[in-house]
Structure formats: C-alpha cells, structure tokens
Design a protein around this nucleic acid. Structure first.
Lengths: 248, 248
DNA sequence: CTATTTGATGCAAAATTATGCAACTTTAAT
DNA sequence: ATTAAAGTTGCATAATTTTGCATCAAATAG
C-alpha cells in the first residue's frame, strides 16, 4: 500500500467521522502506530488536519467545508439518500437541486455510477469533482450564499436546454393541496424549471417539511412522481399516495 | 514493446486502479523497475500523473488529495496573492480564472473586501460562499475535473456579457514572444474570453512558468497589463517590462 | 500518586531511488 | 551500406527514505 493511499484513507475517514484514532488507523491500515503517527505528522504539516493526543481532528477552515457539514449526514438524510440511490442507473441524465438532502445523496454515489449530473449547487459540484465517472454540468448565475446555489435567468436558461431522466428536488415545504413551495422566489423559479425539464420528478422531504407551505410556489403535487421521506409510515402520506404519487 | 505502449498501459491502468505500483508494472510490462521508474518520471514530467514512492497516483482531480494540496498555499503563491490583493478595491468587478494561484488569492481576501467576482472555478466559488461581502457569479457549463472549472460555450457566453475591471489569469506558460499559452484548448478559449472582457489583465505566474510555451494560445503578451510573479528580480523579466508590462 | 497510554528519539532492516556505466537500438548523415 | 550520434535499457552500487522496534519521557486517567 502506497503512503499516499494511507494519507487518503486518513483524510477520508477524518472527513466522515470528524476524528481519527491512531490505534484504529493502525489496525485499519495494517501499519505500526509509529507510522500512523508519522503520517498524521505530515498531514498536520501540510495543514490538512490538527494532530491531537491519540489521533487527529479536522482543520476547521476546510476549503470545501460548508457549515452544514455537521447537519449533513444525519441518519434520516442517509436513509433517504439510499432510497434515492435505488432510482439511479448508469447512463442517466439527472438534475440535482441544491440542499443538504441532495448533497447527502451525492456523497454516497458509488464510484462505478456513471451519470450526467446537471446542478446549480456549488457543494454538489465540488463533491462530484471527486467522483471518477460522473460528468457534471454546472448552471451559471449569481450564487446565493445561503443555498450555495446559482440562480437567476442564466440557470433557468441552461436548465431549459436539458431533457433529464430524473430530477431530485430538495424540498422545503410540501402540502397535499398547495403543492411544493419555497421561501425564496428566485429559488422557487429555478426549482420550477427543474421540474419542467425532467421526465420523472423525485422530491426529497423529511417528515417535518410535510403539510407546511411557504410563499412561493414551485409546482403542484401532481407534478411529482415520487416522494422520498424518512418515515413513509406516517398517516398523512396517504393523501399523496391517493394522487398517484409513489411515497417511499 | 514500444515505450509508447508502456506509457499507454501505465495511464490506462492508473485510470482503472487509481494507482500503479512499480513492482507490478515491472512484471506486467516485462521491463526492469528502472525502466518503469523512468517511464513514470517522464509521465510525471508531462503532468499526466504524480510520482510517489513506490509507484504513482493520478494527477488528483480531487481537492482532498494531498500531493497537490501541499502545493497549494506555498510561500510563493502566498506572496503573489498578497501582491494581487493590492490591485483590488471595493466595488470592483473581477474575473477570476481557475487555478491554485487565484485560489490562494481568494483565500486571503480580507472580510471587508466588497467585490463582484465572476469565476468559472468551483473551488473559488466554494471559498467565496464563506466570504461575507463578495458577490459571486458562476459561469455555467461542463465541469472539467482536472481544472475544477466550468468550460465550453456557456461559460464564454456568460463571460462575454461582462465588463470587468480586472481579470486575474492563472497562467500555465508565459513566453516573451509567444505570449500566454495553455495545454487544453477549451480552457485556453475560456481564458481568451476572460482577457477580452476585462479592462485590466493580470497574469499570475511563478518563475517556472516563464519562457515556456504550450500548444494552445490564450493571448499576446501585449494583452497583459500586469504580471505578478514570485521573483520579480529575474533577469529575463526585462523582456516583459520593455513591452510596457508592469512586472511585480 | 501510580498505572497506563501516548509521544519522542535513536537505531537497524528493508525498500526505494539515484547514479554511473556498458550493451544495445534507433536515427541521421555521409 | 557505414558510421557516428543519440537514445534506451538493465545492472551494480551507493544514497536516501520508510518502517518498526526498543527505550525512555511526558501526559492522562483512576
């Protein structure tokens, strides 16, 4: 095993677990703790982590760190991401909306998955740059710092030139009558365009988003084909199923 | 077996396995490890892979990869970034090319700096999302994983609608007669467009980029207004100064 | 305070790399 | 065709780097 592979493993693990232990790494990597220590030493030297007694923790201003990092991979998001993954197949063209749910999905893309992803999200693009087989098309425009997505006419113009197989929508509010709504007009418009440009629309929404509404309309409930949620057992989800939407 | 065949095999294997070992290649290719080493050496020279002890790893497209990351914030890059910072003033509209030099610049943006930044670089956009006062406009298009930038017609279309005060160009090769050149046609085209759309063009180039040339032309030397380099004392920089370019 | 864990240092074995060199092949010019 | 020059390749040898271990110092936990 190359030294670089070890360093890579350490950084990946650190990124996933938010900490690494020398003893653990030693068994994981099948090298002595001394070597692990020296590896951590060199990573710390390059400013990629902070060495602490017994292991290491991430260096706070990670160039790709987004504040949501900690909120990202919650169990429910991970569950939803795994359900979403089942809908994906090699060769598809997929529109990915911004947001933590879709970012969680991208993070668990298996390395062999070969897709064309159209997205307006900077963190999704950054994440997919690391993916060996997926092609990324970024829509242009002014970047909204809250959502970390591009928006505006440019984004919509680019989206409209696409015919996607799938669209994954990170949803803020979902209401059985009022449909999908958002808090920001520009974002809502972009989402609407995404819905229009995909054959199959999938909404990712945790239970707390259900039954709420916001000022700006994205699309009707009937425009959705599938809803992915963390708890598909909930009673009120029947309202969606009755309208012919698959809820998982 | 021809040398070219070996090089081809190495690159294919590297692409498939994400790493190559010298011992393995030596048996695979039926040549001595010395020859493999020399092959890797020449591939590394042309920037097609990164040679490490015991083998080689891909020229990492991913920012989490160490070898390149350590090359990021080197002292010379930091020095150049500080010089570049002197050219920036509140309220300006600035085009930022991709690359480690420009990324270093963005990393040291003081929090009060209030700019409009147009960029095709995913890492620069990600970095600036964290910046409180700078507005970011991302150009759209297919993302090149090596450069981590968007490219193609869309990017150029968006750039052409801009009138920027400044353009910072991360430069691969700079030659007193041949001008600025690059290794990739699409990237070169994008850079050309950037130069055309800015009133003042600044090239960031470390000393080792000087006097070299690549296949694809970006612009003439006379299109540059300023060159920022790590060592402005070097003798041959006079050639640029004689053409009226400010070299710092 | 003591026991235990972790860190630092020096060292030796193993692996990897660099270097010079000779044999051999290819290229170009006569 | 012959020759010279340049480039490749493999080998021997030396230098360097990496790794694991032993030992002792320092930090931490109970």
């Amino acid at each position: 095993m190359l030294k670089e592979e070890r360093l890579d493993y350490i950084l990946k693990k650190l990124n996933a677990d938010r900490k690494v232990l020398q003893t653990e790494l030693s068994t994981d990597l099948q090298v002595s703790e001394d070597t692990v220590r020296r590896d951590l030493e060199s990573l710390a030297q390059s400013g990629l982590l902070i060495k602490v007694r017994g292991g290491a923790i991430p260096h706070s201003p990670n160039p790709y760190s987004f504040k949501e990092r900690t909120l990202f991979h919650t169990d429910d998001k991970l569950l939803m991401a795994q359900k979403a993954l089942n809908l994906l197949h090699n060769g598809q063209t997929v529109i990915l909306d911004g947001g933590t749910s879709t970012l969680s999905l991208v993070k668990i893309f298996p390395p062999e998955l070969q897709l064309t992803v159209i997205t307006n999200s900077v963190p999704i693009a950054a994440q997919l740059i690391e993916h060996p087989k997926t092609q990324v098309i970024l829509t242009g425009g002014r970047v909204n710092k809250n959502a970390q997505t591009a928006g505006g006419q440019e984004t919509m113009r680019m989206l409209r030139r696409v015919r996607a197989d799938l669209c994954f929508l990170g949803v803020c509010s979902l209401h059985p009558i009022l449909g999908v709504t958002g808090m920001n007009m520009e974002e809502a418009e972009v989402k609407t365009t995404m819905v229009e440009c995909a054959s199959h629309v999938v909404a990712l929404a945790t239970g707390d988003k259900m039954g709420t509404a916001e000022p700006y309309k994205v699309c009707n409930i009937t425009d959705l084909d599938t809803i992915i949620t963390d708890n598909p057992e909930l009673e009120f989800l029947e309202a969606y199923r009755e309208q012919g939407i698959k809820v998982v």
